[in-house]
Design a protein around this nucleic acid. Structure first.
Lengths: 360, 360
DNA sequence: AGCAGGTACTGTAGCGGTACAGAAGAACCT
DNA sequence: AGGTTCTTCTGTACCGCTACAGTACCTGCT
């Protein structure tokens, strides 16, 4: 117990220790390991701390000493604003936040960080989610280099780290097959890809695409190829309703328009619905439209959308338990084979798809 | 330069210093203050660091030494999941995230934290937003005790801390006056309050309510009182469309139903619209309905909603610049009078309000 | 009496950085 | 030559806390 000079300075464990006449360590224990000292002494310490206006061990100092911060990060490719506009993303975030709550971990949103401060590199955290990011994004690279426990979501699986995906390919395939079964032969696709070329695309599977984009495209092609159908593909730079509207207009306003449209998301599908409406085309009479995700939007459009359902909340829950487990494991020094979960998708048929007029 | 034993242990500044043959401080400078050493040496150090797989100064250690973490928190009363379901909240979060990006600060969502880990107390951060929280919530208390720079949003202003609010009261009043001017005399109110009693309420202004709830109620009453109108008030525990549906049904399905409904949010208003529809009542022919917020929902309902517009994005931007300024100030030791911003609200008249039949 | 086993508290040695005040030499000026 | 100023690097002293290995004393058992 060395009585340090007690200036007006900050109240620390030492301040309290000096006041009560015990060692700093005992004060620390009073806060962090109550079983290490007698209840009476602990009470004395706690009330002295209260007198001095001490709130509790400084989180930053504690983080350094303990080696953990109490927060996990989530890296999102898009600007964070976009993440908050997209219903699928917000649902996912909500599920994570919810699932994280009992563990007491906070969720830190990692901006891409222009300039010299890069959150993925500079923010203290115990682990992170990589959500729907480009594998080559600098943020991902930083997180990996930091050797943080990572869980990839909607992202091409990386060997050594656990991942959660949905079965995008099968879902897309089911959607395509559904159209084929109805008798459609001229099919348009409206998809979104931050990488690839935009506009009308001839070779729809490009290498630079995000995992989800690629998988869905492969699935659609799987379903169409069987019948030799070559779709017309419009690729948008983002998942935006207005862009989809324009794209759908230009696809539908031709001499021999597609009788059905496969869309990357329900949001794009609503744009397509609006375009059809604008052109005086009946859905599903003149053109069938299929979405993806089965967001709340899908059931509310007119007509309600045929779409591919994914369980976004489950994705969030599973990712979270994987991450907390991984953090635990890493701390314990254990090494387990990384798990790669793929959640099922199911086709939900509503009223936006029907047989094309020609075959009726 | 003391050559510490170099085990398989972690790579730190010292490891690199030993390797290159300079002091640890110089290595630190190579990363954090490039102007303090010659470009050549810096390059040597950086490449040595790269060889050793060093990512950069450990964020937790740096946070302790520098006294800042690079993240700000946001405390939300509701479960975080709710925050992600509500469009107003997500828009607000998006605006904050966006505005925060250039500063390189990350945004940490503070869960209320059951159990012994309380993020508001235990997570390292440089400041925080208190968004639409109960003044007496334990989270707020912890943040205040930590003496963190705080900005209150949609929260009763606290003297010493800056705050951002919208003019809820005037907005609500304008909505009420609009109905009065149209000739409505029997008015119902559907509001949400996590505190007060729920169901039919006789004394609509209770003390335990949130600031926003109280202000809107006062505004509505301001507008109705002038003409001696005593509204029927239904108070819901949360901002939920289904609850609003039920509430609206029970209000409208009576002998002498209100000819107009004032709703706490556009979301509640959509519930009310659905209820009217279900009861075979025409909006606005049989009943007028007014929302609040002017979210994207409002323009999309049938009929489009008359509502009170608030600029949520501006709220987020202003709150963010206030917080960053406050953090800067606090660091500089300056003390300024806390600013209390109130943003305007405006009535947006669309097609969900009209004169009541009786007076036509 | 002698010793194992608790319980309650303490001291030391970090955790991995950064701030700040030098120190040593080169460059510039009069 | 002597003084000033810059540039470039170094040493020390923390930041505030915790892990861990004691120490001291008390209890109970043989």
């Amino acid at each position: 117990m060395q009585a340090r000079i007690e200036l007006m300075s900050r109240v620390t464990l030492q301040t309290i220790a000096d006041r009560v006449g015990v060692s700093r360590m005992t004060v620390s224990n009073a806060f962090s390991r109550p079983d290490q000292l007698s209840p009476e002494l602990r009470q004395r310490i706690l009330s002295a701390a209260d007198d001095l206006g001490y709130v509790g061990p400084d989180p930053a100092a504690r983080a350094l000493a303990r080696g953990r911060t109490g927060a996990v990060g989530i890296l999102l490719t898009d600007s964070l604003r976009d993440a908050f506009t997209d219903e699928v993303a917000t649902t996912f975030l909500g599920a994570i936040a919810d699932e994280l709550e009992p563990s007491g971990l906070a969720l830190t949103l990692l901006a891409s960080g222009r300039g010299d401060i890069v959150p993925a590199r500079d923010v203290p955290m115990d682990g992170a989610f990589v959500y729907s990011c480009d594998t080559r994004s600098p943020g991902v690279e930083w997180l990996r280099r930091r050797k943080l426990p990572l869980v990839y979501v909607d992202h091409a699986p990386v060997d050594d780290a656990p991942s959660v995906n949905i079965d995008d390919r099968s879902g897309a395939r089911a959607a395509a097959e559904h159209l084929v079964e109805l008798g459609h032969r001229r099919v348009g696709i409206i998809t979104a890809s931050f990488a690839g070329p935009h506009g009308l695309v001839t070779n729809p599977v490009s290498t630079g695409d995000g995992h989800v984009t690629t998988q869905r495209m492969l699935g659609w092609l799987d379903g169409l190829d069987a019948d030799g159908i070559r779709p017309v593909v419009m690729q948008l730079p983002t998942d935006d309703e207005h862009l989809a509207y324009d794209a759908a207009r230009s696809l539908l306003d031709t001499v021999e328009p597609p009788t059905a449209l496969l869309c990357f998301s329900d949001l794009l599908a609503t744009g397509a619905l609006r375009a059809a409406d604008q052109l005086g085309l009946n859905v599903p009479g003149d053109v069938s439209i299929v979405g993806f995700d089965d967001s709340t939007l899908a059931a509310r459009t007119r007509p309600p959308l045929t779409t591919v359902r994914q369980d976004v909340a489950a994705k969030g829950r599973i990712a979270t338990s994987m991450l907390t487990a991984l953090i635990e494991q890493t701390r314990a020094g254990a090494t387990t084979q990384a798990e790669h979960v793929v959640l099922p998708t199911t086709l939900v048929v509503r009223d936006s798809t029907a047989r094309p007029r020609a075959v009726e």
